[in-house]
Design a protein around this nucleic acid. Sequence first.
RNA 1: GCUCGAGUGGUGGAAUAGGUAGACACGCAGGACUUAAAAUCCUGUGGGCAGCAAUGUCCGUACGGGUUCGAUUCCCGUCUCGAGCACCA
Length: 922
Amino acid sequence: MSTDYNFSEIEKKWQEFWAQNRTFQVTEDAGKPKFYVLDMFPYPSGAGLHVGHPLGYIASDIYSRYKRLKGYNVLHPMGFDAFGLPAEQYAVQTGRHPAETTEENIARYKRQLNRIGFSFDWSREVRTCDPKYYKWTQWAFLKMFGSWYDNSIQKVRPIEELTAHFSESGTDGIDAACSRVLSFTAAEWNAMDEGRRAAVLMNYRIAYLGETSVNWCPQLGTVLANDEVKEGLSVRGGYPVIQKKMQQWQLRVSAYAQRLLDDLDSLEWTDSLKEMQRNWIGRSEGAEMIFKVSNGENTYDMTIFTTRADTVFGVTFMVLAPESEWVPRLTAPEMKSSVEEYLASAAKKTERERIAETRQVTGVFTGSYAVNPITGAKIPVWISEYVLSGYGTGAIMAVPAHDSRDYAFAKHFNLPIVPLIEGCDVSQESFDAKEGIMCNSGFLNGMTVKEAIPAAVRKIQELGIGRKKINYRLRDAIFSRQRYWGEPFPIYYKDGVATPMDMSCLPLCLPEIDRYQPTESGEPPLARAVGWEYQGWPIEKSTMPGFAGSSAYYLRYMDPHNDSAIVDRAKDEYWRDVDLYVGGTEHATGHLIYSRFWNKFLYDLGYVCEKEPFRKLVNQGMIQGRSNFVYRIKGTNTFVSYGLKDKYETTEIHVDVNIVHNDRLDTEAFRKWMPDFATAEFILEDGEYICGWAVEKMSKSMFNVVNPDNVCDTYGADTLRLYEMFLGPVEQSKPWDTKGIDGVHRFLKKFWRLFYGRDGALFTDTPATAAELKVLHNLIRKVSADIENFSMNTSVSAFMIAVNELTELGCTSREILEPMVILLSPFAPHICEELWSRLGHTASVANAAFPEYIESYTVENTFEYPVSFNGKTRFKLELPKAVDPAAAEAAVLASPNTEKYLAGKPVKKIIVVPSKIINVVF
RNA sequence: GCUCGAGUGGUGGAAUAGGUAGACACGCAGGACUUAAAAUCCUGUGGGCAGCAAUGUCCGUACGGGUUCGAUUCCCGUCUCGAGCACCA
């Protein structure tokens, strides 16, 4: 048996051992407390893993292994978010089936992950593109299609209960989340034909088909959700996005807005993440107010939303969103052509252009007028882009004196501005602050703004022209994607009416098609599928978005092979929810909202037992790339070292970081790297070529991608794991910098040498000394506290200190070394398994028990020493044994601050080291 | 513009409840072992001043104030960086 630390042999051996012995497979065990540790499952991209990906996985794996040692039954699964755009785009280019490339990518990912020694229970693996998995995505969709949200009990109910109510009493007594408020009697309902009823019900379903303004990305040929668009460009690909009205499947997430907001308080998430979700939900309290509007022939009631009901006396015009349904009704004949021209120009703009022209004022007059319900004044109705159709009612009352957007509009089109707050100057800009005393405002005069807002709301409520209203920014999620590689909708169109398939039809498998691009007529790829029909009727041709499959995957891990339920009730009641969820912050307003919504929906229907899916959430930081540069002297093939480059005219060239070590270039490897450089010459400094560097995104084009496989080859997985933790706090973003990896590797070698010297085993059965026990127990305390707090980086330091100390003490005692192996095993599992077995154990170290911390081994041996001051015993010194009490007393009394310490305050203790006071506790 | 978060040596970063700032590691410098290299080990390493020296002393956690016997930590203001939202009425 080798006495050297041969990591590659050890790591291979134990990875095989874990797989063969199914060491990390778990089942429900009522005798043990459960703990569910989840990583955000990866999208298996063609590029494979780089060192940034495993950061969170390593931290969660340490946590899982630690909890296992602590006696918990730990569920720690992994799977793949396997539907998605890149595989499909690759298919469009190459004609290869996305399933094929996805399969290959998953195999590569699994191989890479397993090399790092994660304790995943692979028997529970899920893949979103597997029909056995997406059966339950489709199932949930059908459940949503068959449900409505009852606002009065804040809960979802089966749609049959709504139809029963309709046939008995119409819409009377119904307070439902809906696309638009409808009102009809039972008789009217009963007289409707099937098609009409279907249309009415669509207004209430949680999953519904509706016309909406969507983010359309022409280059991708698909619709995108709000969180898939950043700054007017698609997150995937960075293509421009335009607004387009389309008939789309949507999820009525907005029904859950208040609950999604309220339940945030119960979660152990970072404040910043909760804040992000709060902003995204965007609750705002205000009022709805009805304005009479007239196009000259007819008069209508138009409802608007405002948070400043108090400013109603200053409304000098109204504004409609260009997409508002009021526009056609209120456009006067003589204004028709200019309105149409304006609408056309607004529709043509991309989202990005709209943002770029943010402060440019545009708009057009409709020719119609509204009546201010309080003052009776006749005010013009305009159309402008600055009003959004998706928020409130898509129409506003404009108060230019107290809203900067209305102000800009009024100035531009020369509309009147009426100030409503005493002493405010609106000649240059609006006065938006909610402070001051009201004036020019009838019954509100003399009140402060804070008083006036509720007073105005009360008044309009009395007059029956409005009511208190809470609005949310959160919109319904658009659920259709015009592409191939996603879950098909189990919906067919019977006489044009969207009809759900029977549950027994699930899974509805994705059909084969010959090509993956949209059809020539612009239909989604599924239009190419031959026989894509159900009982002779056409099946829905769009597919579900990426977030569909990732919204409930944590539930399937609890019971991944169940074909008759999304999760067995007993298993759900055992595993309940995710105790620790680790993943990137980029999912804050996407996946993490959708998942919470999805879970709440299933909770309402009684399929799951917890209101919230993810109890504690940790956001790991991104690992950026650290690029290296070489400097070629212009017009030559000679490269000059970093420190000398200013003496020449050079071009900076990215060089593969894998042939650079500690910023020193491996010149031989460089010559072999690319044919162009085969004859490269170098100007060195001190015999070495020093490279320049910069922090950039980790990407192939910058040659700064570091593959974890390479690190495992050179240093081993245990070093990689420790180093990623050592780099800094898990939550923090930082560049991958291999400087320092040697230090961590050196630590593992030192650790090994505690057990094995040059001539064989060192460990003995001699009892531990007091000093050794102190080192061990301090470490136990430190490491458990650190892991619980997720500060793995300081744990690694603590290990280094402990190993140095034990080395210095010449520790060989099994009594110390065995617990050390257990302690380190979550961080560096392979070396610990090996040492554990060499210590004579046959079971995996993963099945050991975490050593208990015994305080008496570590407490400082201190004693109290009374100090008299001015003849009285005034305070006590808590002194370490090593300190001379007389010297300490002298130091305290001599301290110029002692008088201040004693000034009227009782002193509890003073901690002293020779000649210096360090700690006074009152 | 609004909302969060963060600014500590040459570098990554420590400092649990306000109590010896800079742990640990990298890098650097010097040394040991070696024919040599690699590996390994030891010593030093925030800055200024004084001293042959052990050492002493002052300044130091973005900047300016405040609270406190004592502030990297708490409070107010400023600057810089990062993240998110962005015409949300």
